[in-house]
Design a protein around this nucleic acid. Sequence first.
DNA 1: TAAAAATACTCCATAGGTATTTTAT
DNA 2: ATAAAATACCTATGGAGTATTTTTA
Lengths: 303, 303
Amino acid sequence: MELRHLRYFATVAQTCHFGRAAVLLHVAQPALSQAIRQLEAELGAALFTRTTRQVRLTPAGEFLHDEAKRVLGSVDDSVRGVRRIAQGRLGLVRMAFTGTSAFTHLPRIVRVLRRELPDVALEIHTDLLTPAQCDGLRDDSIDLGLLRPPATGEEISVRTIEVEPLVLAVPAHHRLADEPLLAMPDLATESFVLYSNPDSAVNEAVVRRCRQAGFLPHHEHDAPGTAALLALVAAGLGIALVPASARAMPLTGVVFRDVAGAGSVELALAWREHRESALVTSVLDVLGVLFAADRQPVQKAAG
Amino acid sequence: MELRHLRYFATVAQTCHFGRAAVLLHVAQPALSQAIRQLEAELGAALFTRTTRQVRLTPAGEFLHDEAKRVLGSVDDSVRGVRRIAQGRLGLVRMAFTGTSAFTHLPRIVRVLRRELPDVALEIHTDLLTPAQCDGLRDDSIDLGLLRPPATGEEISVRTIEVEPLVLAVPAHHRLADEPLLAMPDLATESFVLYSNPDSAVNEAVVRRCRQAGFLPHHEHDAPGTAALLALVAAGLGIALVPASARAMPLTGVVFRDVAGAGSVELALAWREHRESALVTSVLDVLGVLFAADRQPVQKAAG
DNA sequence: TAAAAATACTCCATAGGTATTTTAT
DNA sequence: ATAAAATACCTATGGAGTATTTTTA
């Protein structure tokens, strides 16, 4: 038996008329008669009682009509499902976020993905720093990461979505708070508050810049996150270089200053380069639009 | 798309090996490769990632594998269902019983049908006398009847399953209770208790026999069923001719006597003669065995 | 007698076979 | 080097078309 038989049968059952069914199916009437007889022979069951004047379903035909409709509908659904999966519009994406990116970007990402790709389920992994995300991509435990480059490993593709300059956070009454212009060497003798996590990409950027300026940051205190770090600065325990977005959480007793040559940190989407799935591609497309819209007004303001 | 594609695909998905799948499917490997490529082209989706060394399902293929197994299983189930319906082993039979046959035969019929044809559902219609059953058969509201012949109408087939002689029920102290031999003319002057229902086949047989003996039964009282009828006889309100099975409900004050020429009533299965369904046929087969087993010991006892 | 299904017969599309090539490990 | 999938090409089955016959209401 083939779906052809079921399709032909369902149409004849619907119309109870071989001629009209043949028209609907775009085949000649004898071809239909033949296919139905063939089906009946294979099943060992009469499906229609037919005279030249009247075609009626037998009980077995009645049953098969229901079944055929179900099966054909089911096949259609399967085809639709396969196509949507192949188009990356149906499936599960496991997405990782760093601690800070979760707060700043996760809500918008989830919202836009639910709107644009409603049949793509999201599995969210939070508090994964860059190296953990790279591992996750490599061992296929996540599909997409929001991390701070550089991502280690050749097989990982990266698309930067945001560049944040590092800015100086100093206690309000610190000597550097009032300097007209600051450059990296000015920080050489200061005590730094750093992030606790040894894998922190921000820390790494800070240390790299300090080394380029000819010194290593003197590190007395550290904090698990930006909020805690700023609190320590406010308390006068040291200075810190933090992403510019930290200005969004103002704290009395902390002053933010631009520093020439302080560099910047990036936030980027990362995914497996090879065997890239249609799902990841379509998610990247949607997120690309989202972050392009982000950048657009900034460029206008600058130009 | 045809079931062939799904069958081929499911086997390749199972084995992840075109060569072995081809062996299982009894086709050559190139035919399989070709069919799968054709399926992929139609779906617009890659179903396998394949090198010469390794065949793996894509996410779309993974999905289609589940769907294909479901659809193919569903088709198999449908085929089995159609075959069983065509064999009369699956379906619904609407069966009618007369008032008395319901008590005497319905339990055994239901029991044996549930055992021999477990997937045949029974819809029981009770208290339908012979003419009502004939109507039901004709207008297709019942499929099978247990009635007392003769059944009116040419298009109804009948198979007698039981012949019961009519016997005389008389009050214990009635003059006929002690007569050595009785014949119909002896009843000519008696008062009869009859069944209330004007369509009663037993009444008709009684009246016919009386008429053949040259009299019409003098009818003073009637009763809706055999039990009530015997009660009236016990009360001395008259005599009655009843099926011999009435001896199975003995009542103090009632004596049963054989009467020469009293005739008999039959119980028969009845069904539509033309367009007879496989279902009715298989039910008749089972009931045929049941009632043949009934008759066998009786014949032995008689012979 | 007329409408519709079945039958007879033909044709070609394509499923599937064989032989061979390509490719990845 | 080898196993396995892809490709090339050919064959033949059978699906579908046209013409005709049969059937029944």
